[in-house]
Amino acid sequence: MTDQRVGSKSPAQATSPDGGAGSPPNDLIPGENEDVRDDGDSSLGTDAESSTASMSASILEYRQIQGRTFHSDRFTVDYAFPNDQKQLESVDITHHYLTLLFGNRLFLAPIADDVQQVLDAGTGSGIWAIDFADQYPGAEVIGTDLSPCQPKWVPPNVRFEIDDVTESWTWDDGKFDFIHLRYLFGAIKDWTALYKEAFRCCAPGGWVESAEANIQFRSDDGTADLAPVLDLCTRLYDEGGQAIGRPFFMDHLQPKGFKEAGFTDIKTMDYKVPIGGWAKDPNLAEVGRFVRLTLENDIEGYTLALWNHVLGWPKDEYQIFLMDIRKALRNREIHSYFTVRVVYGRKPE
């Protein structure tokens, strides 16, 4: 696999051929002038009332926290992000910037063109499953999530079901040709157990892909130090993840979990993801503008439960925290980024 460095005209990735942890590339270069225009996604929008799965009324008894809705207690009280419209909009924008980051690709694993059975575990708004089903009309795509928050109108070859990926999977051994896992950080207690379930349900010769962000804000030129609130945000996720037993910083667990599960041909790609349109490379600048839009759209949803209800930090300081985060996101002098790690592997024939 070709190693394509961040800052070039190609998608930003660094590959570790042995499946180990590839070091993030170091040439994410700031441009002279940031294009500060914000971009939206006209496809935003979901319908929280639809699902092909059989539902009991308890599934729709969402928890209410300060006007935001979270997944039903039927499954977990520990998942820290909401499932309402505001959060789902950010999920859809995230899907867009990741697609751009990956070179207008929905995935990186070398799956077969005639892939038949596909699982998107933890599908969220369902946007990845829908796009994949459109791109592969011959495949049957299943998306699972804790809440029935996916849209009503979907391609005929995709369906959504209620399920918790942290429990034992109900699928038969070897059912799926491709299993897609993305942005489950903060939701999983045992990553190795998750990958072992994916291995069991993957067909021989099939592929599993896991894409996770390390949401520690950093910079190569030290400009992240201009906003101490970024370090506070890292502390929020570190201590919050420990408190709920579901780590937010787990990219180091991906290659290890894949190996322990039994996968072969494991590949690891690391990406630097700019926050804001400061990158010199135009594609990365575009990615960065959508990243900033994602965070600005619902920074409250990403932090509310952890700050106020998990860690119990001073509530009178929370609004100041939100204000400082927004200032940092809009500060053109701060060249901050986080990293995304993609790991995929094949189940032996």
Rank of each mutant, 00 (worst) to 15 (best):
129 A>Q: 04
130 I>L: 07
130 I>D: 02
130 I>R: 05
131 D>E: 15
131 D>R: 11
131 D>T: 07
131 D>V: 04
131 D>C: 06
131 D>Y: 05
132 F>P: 00
136 Y>M: 08
137 P>F: 15
137 P>Q: 15
137 P>R: 15
138 G>P: 11
139 A>H: 11
139 A>K: 04
139 A>F: 10
140 E>H: 13
142 I>Q: 09
144 T>A: 06
145 D>T: 07
145 D>Y: 01
147 S>L: 10
147 S>I: 08
147 S>G: 10
150 Q>G: 09
150 Q>D: 09
151 P>S: 08
151 P>G: 09
152 K>P: 04
154 V>W: 13
154 V>S: 14
155 P>M: 14
155 P>G: 13
155 P>F: 12
156 P>M: 12
157 N>H: 07
157 N>Y: 03
158 V>F: 11
158 V>A: 12
160 F>G: 02
160 F>A: 04
161 E>R: 05
162 I>S: 02
163 D>T: 06
163 D>F: 09
163 D>W: 07
164 D>S: 12
164 D>C: 12
164 D>P: 07
164 D>E: 13
165 V>H: 06
165 V>Q: 09
166 T>V: 14
167 E>G: 08
168 S>P: 15
168 S>I: 11
169 W>P: 00
169 W>T: 01
169 W>E: 01
169 W>D: 01
170 T>C: 08
171 W>G: 06
171 W>L: 06
171 W>Q: 13
171 W>Y: 15
171 W>P: 01
171 W>A: 15
172 D>Q: 13
173 D>A: 08
173 D>M: 04
173 D>V: 10
173 D>Q: 13
175 K>C: 08
175 K>L: 12
175 K>V: 07
175 K>I: 05
176 F>S: 04
176 F>R: 09
178 F>H: 02
178 F>W: 05
178 F>I: 06
179 I>S: 08
179 I>A: 04
179 I>P: 10
180 H>F: 01
180 H>L: 01
181 L>P: 00
185 F>G: 03
185 F>R: 01
186 G>I: 01
186 G>F: 00
188 I>W: 00
189 K>I: 05
189 K>V: 08
190 D>Y: 08
191 W>C: 00
191 W>K: 00
192 T>V: 15
193 A>L: 04
195 Y>F: 15
196 K>T: 14
197 E>A: 02
198 A>D: 00
199 F>C: 02
199 F>G: 02
200 R>V: 04
200 R>W: 03
200 R>E: 05
200 R>K: 14
201 C>Q: 01
201 C>E: 00
202 C>S: 03
202 C>M: 01
203 A>C: 03
203 A>D: 01
203 A>P: 00
204 P>C: 07
204 P>D: 05
204 P>A: 10
204 P>K: 04
204 P>S: 09
205 G>P: 03
206 G>V: 03
206 G>L: 02
208 V>K: 00
209 E>I: 03
209 E>N: 07
210 S>L: 06
210 S>W: 06
211 A>K: 08
211 A>Q: 14
211 A>P: 00
211 A>F: 08
212 E>I: 05
213 A>F: 11
213 A>V: 13
213 A>D: 10
214 N>C: 12
215 I>A: 11
216 Q>H: 13
216 Q>C: 12
218 R>I: 12
221 D>V: 05
221 D>Q: 05
221 D>K: 04
222 G>I: 12
222 G>F: 12
222 G>W: 13
222 G>Y: 13
224 A>N: 02
225 D>P: 03
226 L>M: 14
227 A>K: 10
227 A>S: 14
